Amino acid sequence: MEALTRVTDVVKRLKETRLNALRPPTEFFDFHRISRPEDVNQAVSRISYNTRYFSANYMFIIAILGVYALLTSPLLLFSLAFLTGGFAAINKFAPDPVQVGDHVITQKSLYTALFVIGIPLLWLSSPFMTFFWLVGASSCLILGHACLIEPGIESEYSTIQDAV
């Protein structure tokens, strides 16, 4: 029960901090503000400002891409569920050694069996390829958006507020 309250507290804090910082879709997808930067300095300036301004939106995009990557890789999803479910089941149902015939099955032997099956299964599901795809896809989307969207008028005043 205590773990459930911790999880709900974390979700509430996440909602209060990150989800309140989400910019509306009309602002995030404002096609009137799309333009090609004139030079590299302007592109870097736009990326610097927009990554701070739209950070919650970009985190949301990364989360959606992560869910998509898991859903399109069923073996990876199964292997992660197998490992986490195995850990949970061993911790819940086998805290003490069990005598089966002449053999004593301990928690350590169950963890060893879980690793012997789970790690090769996880390796076959190519988690590194999925991770690097997630990094590459989110980088392209985020840097492309941040580079092409002109900062709003409020960006002109951000340097003044920093100086005060």
Rank of each mutant, 00 (worst) to 15 (best):
M1W: 04
E2R: 11
E2F: 10
A3E: 12
L4W: 11
T5Y: 11
T5A: 07
T5M: 10
V7M: 15
V7W: 11
T8Y: 05
V10S: 12
V11R: 10
V11E: 11
V11K: 10
V11W: 12
K12N: 12
L14Q: 13
T17C: 01
L19T: 05
N20H: 12
L22D: 10
R23E: 14
R23A: 13
P24G: 13
P25T: 13
D30P: 03
D30T: 08
D30R: 07
R33I: 07
R33S: 14
S35C: 06
S35F: 01
R36N: 02
P37T: 04
P37R: 02
P37Q: 05
E38G: 08
E38K: 11
V40Y: 06
V40P: 02
N41A: 09
Q42I: 03
Q42L: 02
Q42E: 15
V44C: 03
V44W: 07
R46P: 00
I47F: 05
S48T: 14
Y49D: 07
N50I: 03
T51I: 13
R52I: 09
Y53Q: 00
Y53N: 01
F54E: 01
S55G: 01
S55V: 02
N57L: 09
N57I: 09
Y58R: 04
Y58C: 05
M59N: 05
F60P: 00
I61W: 12
I61S: 10
A63Y: 08
A63H: 09
A63D: 10
V67H: 05
Y68W: 13
A69P: 03
A69Y: 04
L71R: 14
T72F: 12
S73I: 01
P74G: 04
L75R: 13
L75M: 15
L76F: 05
L77E: 02
L77H: 03
L77W: 07
L77Q: 07
L80W: 12
G86L: 09
G86Y: 10
F87P: 00
A88D: 12
A88S: 14
A88T: 14
A89S: 15
I90A: 10
I90R: 06
N91Q: 14
K92T: 15
K92Y: 14
A94S: 12
A94I: 00
A94R: 01
P95N: 06
D96Y: 11
D96I: 06
P97S: 07
P97M: 07
V100W: 06
G101W: 04
D102V: 04
H103K: 15
V104Q: 14
V104L: 12
T106C: 06
T106V: 05
Q107M: 05
Q107H: 05
S109D: 08
L110E: 03
Y111W: 11
L114C: 05
F115N: 09
V116A: 15
V116C: 07
G118L: 09
P120M: 10
P120A: 10
L121K: 04
S126V: 00
M129C: 00
T130Q: 14
F131W: 13
W133M: 03
W133G: 01
L134P: 09
V135E: 03
A137F: 13
C140R: 07
L141Q: 01
I142G: 02
L143E: 03
G144W: 02
G144C: 04
G144D: 04
G144Y: 01
C147E: 01
I149V: 15
I149W: 00
E150M: 05
P151G: 05
I153P: 07
S155Y: 08
S155D: 09
Y157Q: 06
Y157T: 04
S158E: 09
D162I: 07
A163G: 00
V164D: 02
